[in-house]
Every structure is written in structure tokens, then in C-alpha cells.
Amino acid sequence: MNRILDYFKIGPVFAYFIRVFRKPDPNRPTSVNLRMMHGINRISIIMFLFAVIVYTIRHCTR
């Protein structure tokens, strides 16, 4: 049973959502590719949250 619950742990996912919006750690190495990847991830997270909000509002007002 414990192995099944390990598949549904989403704590690291939420930790990444918070980490991607923080300023980068100056002690970690950075590159242009990594900064672009985080930028694209920020855009996609914001678009997803906007779509969820719009869908919720449309669903509740019907």
C-alpha cells in the first residue's frame, strides 16, 4: 500500500511551482538554456492557472 501512495505524492511538484518563481540561487550554476526553460515554465503555469480560473467562473455562472 505504501508503494502505491508514493506514486501520488505531489509535494515536489508544488515545491517546483514555488521555486520557479523565486530569484535564482547565486551559488548554483546557471545557463541561458536553464533560464529559458524556467521562463517558459512560468508562462505555462500562469496560462494554466488563468484557464482554470476562467473555466471555474464559467462553470459556476451557468
Results as ranks from 00 to 15, higher is better:
42 R>A: 02
59 H>T: 08
53 I>R: 01
40 I>K: 03
56 T>P: 01
40 I>W: 05
24 P>S: 06
36 M>K: 10
35 R>E: 07
13 V>R: 03
37 M>V: 05
15 A>D: 10
36 M>L: 15
46 I>W: 00
62 R>W: 07
14 F>H: 07
1 M>F: 15
53 I>N: 00
50 F>D: 02
18 I>D: 03
2 N>H: 13
53 I>F: 03
30 T>I: 10
14 F>S: 10
38 H>N: 12
52 V>P: 00
19 R>W: 09
46 I>E: 10
42 R>V: 00
37 M>T: 06
12 P>F: 01
22 R>Q: 05
12 P>S: 02
47 M>N: 02
3 R>W: 09
59 H>Q: 10
49 L>K: 04
19 R>L: 15
34 L>N: 02
6 D>A: 12
27 N>M: 10
20 V>N: 13
4 I>Q: 12
33 N>V: 12
11 G>N: 14
62 R>V: 12
46 I>T: 09
16 Y>I: 04
5 L>N: 10
18 I>E: 06
30 T>L: 13
42 R>F: 00
43 I>P: 03
15 A>C: 03
21 F>I: 04
46 I>A: 15
50 F>Y: 08
4 I>K: 10
18 I>C: 02
43 I>G: 05
16 Y>W: 15
10 I>R: 11
23 K>F: 07
52 V>N: 06
45 I>D: 02
8 F>Q: 08
45 I>M: 13
43 I>H: 04
55 Y>S: 12
47 M>A: 15
7 Y>C: 11
53 I>K: 00
25 D>Y: 00
4 I>A: 15
33 N>R: 14
43 I>L: 14
2 N>D: 12
16 Y>E: 08
35 R>F: 09
14 F>I: 12
37 M>E: 07
15 A>F: 02
45 I>Q: 05
35 R>P: 04
49 L>V: 04
17 F>D: 09
46 I>C: 07
16 Y>N: 04
33 N>F: 09
54 V>K: 08
58 R>Y: 09
2 N>V: 13
5 L>P: 01
55 Y>G: 14
50 F>I: 04
54 V>W: 03
33 N>Y: 11
39 G>P: 01
24 P>K: 14
16 Y>F: 11
26 P>D: 03
37 M>D: 06
2 N>S: 10
22 R>M: 03
48 F>Q: 00
35 R>W: 06
53 I>M: 01
39 G>M: 13
49 L>Y: 08
50 F>K: 05
59 H>A: 13
61 T>V: 15
33 N>D: 06
27 N>D: 13
11 G>H: 09
28 R>F: 04
25 D>H: 03
2 N>Q: 11
47 M>K: 05
52 V>D: 01
51 A>D: 01
48 F>G: 01
58 R>E: 11
56 T>E: 04
3 R>L: 14
5 L>W: 12
16 Y>R: 12
62 R>N: 06
19 R>P: 01
5 L>D: 09
21 F>D: 04
31 S>P: 01
22 R>T: 02
51 A>L: 13
38 H>T: 06
17 F>G: 03
49 L>E: 02
